[in-house]
Design a protein around this nucleic acid. Structure first.
Length: 572
RNA sequence: UGGAGAGUCGUCCAACGGUAGGACAGCUGACUCUGGAUCAGCCGAUGGGGGUUCGAGUCCUCCCUCUCCAGCCA
């Protein structure tokens, strides 16, 4: 009984009295029903089946979270299986990166790492069975001819002239295909189904093709390789996969998936299709991502601008935030495009709890505190994270010259500007109130070069003894021990919410997506950070140390900005 | 009359035939040594027409719109 309600994740949701308000997505609904029916003895076994022909992206994360998540929820298993049936596009580089990314996301396939290529011999034997039962034949039509014979979406196809070969002849020819007697592309093994089917996948699909390409795992053992439709369902069957979850574009392939398993009479996995993830301002197809990499629009698969798992990781995303995002978006069958804002929300939610706060000035403006004693410096205490007292505090040194953010000063401010301006007093975070007394400008350009302020020694606690208030609190870095740093700011990679909508997606690439600031000044603690460390740069956003960072020359990526209500006011 | 699938707030996801709910975004306000966080409130949807029913987002029917499929890719 208990195992019928394994909603562990939602266990802490109030389940008051009779009406259990738990709702399942359509996949879990199917699984619940299957379990209730005793199908597969109640077993739940899924798999994540990437083709190693590119890096994983956030869309894959949705599938990974679904497959591994469902397995965990129902105390089942989830395999990692590489769908490596096309050696011309695949590479070990991708195999390695995929494993790294799945692990980083927090999932574990234990000892269940498989490759479709593990099953090549079994698949070959199955194919012989198909030939023997008259369900497959060797076809001598060229690729072009097959296309012609296939018909069109509205017109039925014609049967191959080789469709009537005897079992004996097919067996002989298929063996010789394997033995390498024929040219690449000269023959195929095809299923004998229905050339008039409205479903083009059923018009005698190719099962095996001849291709002399070294395979990254099987080397030159094979010169024939099975097609996806055939290899995938058989692999699922061999592994005892109960629920084979894939994306919507394979819906049309399900009849073929079922056909192969039925003809073969082997364990029948159930294919279930869901809508793939689309994100605003993002392209998600591996083909397009490959193009961005190969044509140099980004620095690589792990460019922080990329929606790849490795790109998001370098950008500073956490696995928790991605998993939480995948839970939040749910799963359904309708095409949808999730707002990138939701991803960013999940990110901030996580980082807000865990990222230590530090001060970093991105666009420094020097401030001289005229009444602060020359040569003196003092230590002030700064909490590391107001959300989590356990993260403790650190000491900062404060002295006569500091830097503040250029945008925190306006000579002639509009009404709702709460920051520094001539004659106005603000608070320096963790330190004193200062008041702007005068402005030093460049004679030629009029640019503000330096501010002269006075501080109130009585306000060291952050409060004024006389009770006077300030509107704003600014972050700052002491000029004396601030460390110079490079900071990379990112915008969306595309200027269009739907990059592919109006023709070529590359035309909507945002050439200003990366802005590199080389004159930033950060707190000295940041010199010790290592790649991947997360921080909140107070009032600026969440940042992480980049892999390009070097001792004495730190580099940070802005992972995501803070919600900025001042920016909203300005935009009105 | 090619086949398959899908239509619920701006966006995602919910709703045994029984008060259309949540999240993000947006807008107010409160609070704050981050214009952050937090809290409170507001805004806002069943593609259309018929039908069944005491009652329809849900069932039937007709229509409309959108997505996918013509690789020896996956």
């Amino acid at each position: 009984m208990d195992e019928r309600k394994p909603e562990e994740r939602k266990a802490d949701v109030t389940c008051d009295s009779a009406s259990s308000s738990t709702s399942f997505d359509f996949i879990r609904t199917i699984i619940e029903r299957d379990r209730a029916d005793g199908k597969n003895e109640g077993r739940v076994h899924t798999r994540f089946p990437p083709e190693p022909n590119g890096y994983l992206h956030i869309g894959h994360a949705k599938s990974i979270c679904l497959n591994f998540g469902i397995a965990a929820q129902y105390k089942g298993l989830c395999n990692l299986r590489f769908d490596d049936t096309n050696p011309s596009k695949e590479d070990v580089e991708y195999v390695d990166s995929i494993m790294e990314d799945v692990r980083w996301l927090g999932f574990d396939w234990a000892d269940r790492l498989f490759y479709a290529s593990d099953y090549f011999e079994q698949l070959y034997q199955y194919a012989i069975g198909l030939i023997e039962s008259g369900k497959a034949f060797v076809c001598d039509l060229s690729a072009e001819e097959i296309r012609e014979y296939r018909g069109t979406l509205t017109l039925p196809g014609r049967e191959s002239p080789y469709r009537g070969r005897t079992v004996r002849e097919n067996l002989d020819l298929f063996k010789r295909m394997r033995d390498g007697e024929f040219e690449d592309g000269s023959r195929t093994l095809r299923a004998k189904i229905d050339m008039a089917s409205g479903n083009i996948n059923m018009r005698d699909p190719v099962i095996y093709r001849i291709q002399r390409t070294s395979h990254h795992r099987t080397g030159d053992d094979w010169c024939i390789y099975p097609m996806y439709d055939y290899a995938h369902c058989c692999s699922d069957s061999i592994e005892g996969i109960t629920h084979s979850i894939c994306t919507l574009e394979f819906e049309d392939h399900r009849p073929l998936y079922d056909w192969y398993l039925e003809q073969l009479g082997i364990f029948h996995s159930q294919q279930i299709e869901f809508a793939r993830l689309n994100l605003t301002y993002t392209v998600m197809s591996k083909r397009k991502l490959l193009q961005l990499v190969e044509e140099g629009y980004v620095t690589g698969w792990n460019d922080p601008l990329m929606p790849t798992i490795s790109g998001l990781r370098r950008r500073g995303f956490t696995p928790e935030s991605i998993r939480n995002f995948c839970d939040t978006i749910g799963v359904a069958k309708r095409d949808s495009t999730v707002s990138i804002d939701l991803l960013n929300h999940c990110l901030r939610e996580d980082l807000n709890k865990r990222a230590p706060r530090v001060m970093a000035v991105l666009h420094p403006l020097k401030v001289v505190i005229d009444n602060y004693p020359e040569g003196r410096s003092e230590e002030v205490e700064a909490v590391n994270n107001p959300e989590d007292p356990e993260m403790g505090s650190r000491m900062l040194s404060f002295s006569k010259e500091i830097y503040i953010e250029k945008s925190d000063f306006m000579e002639d401010p509009p009404g709702k500007f709460f920051r520094l301006s001539p004659g106005r007093e603000i608070r320096l975070k963790h330190a004193y109130f200062i008041k702007c007394e005068s402005v030093v400008k460049d004679d030629l350009t009029g640019e503000v070069k330096e501010l002269h302020c006075t501080y109130d020694p009585e306000t060291g606690s952050g409060q004024a003894p006389d009770g006077r208030k300030v509107k704003g609190t600014l972050h700052w870095v002491s000029a004396e021990d601030g460390v110079k740093a490079t900071v990379r700011l990112y915008q969306h990679l595309f200027t269009s919410e739907d990059p592919g909508a109006a023709g070529d997606f590359k035309e909507t690439i945002n050439s200003d997506a990366l802005e590199e600031l080389t004159d930033c000044v950060v707190e000295p603690v940041l010199t010790d950070s290592s790649p991947g460390d997360h921080f909140q740069f107070l009032r600026n956003g969440y940042f992480c140390t980049d892999t390009d960072s070097r001792p004495g020359a730190p580099v940070f990526n802005r992972t995501v900005g803070l919600r900025d209500s001042w920016a909203k006011i300005q935009n009105k």
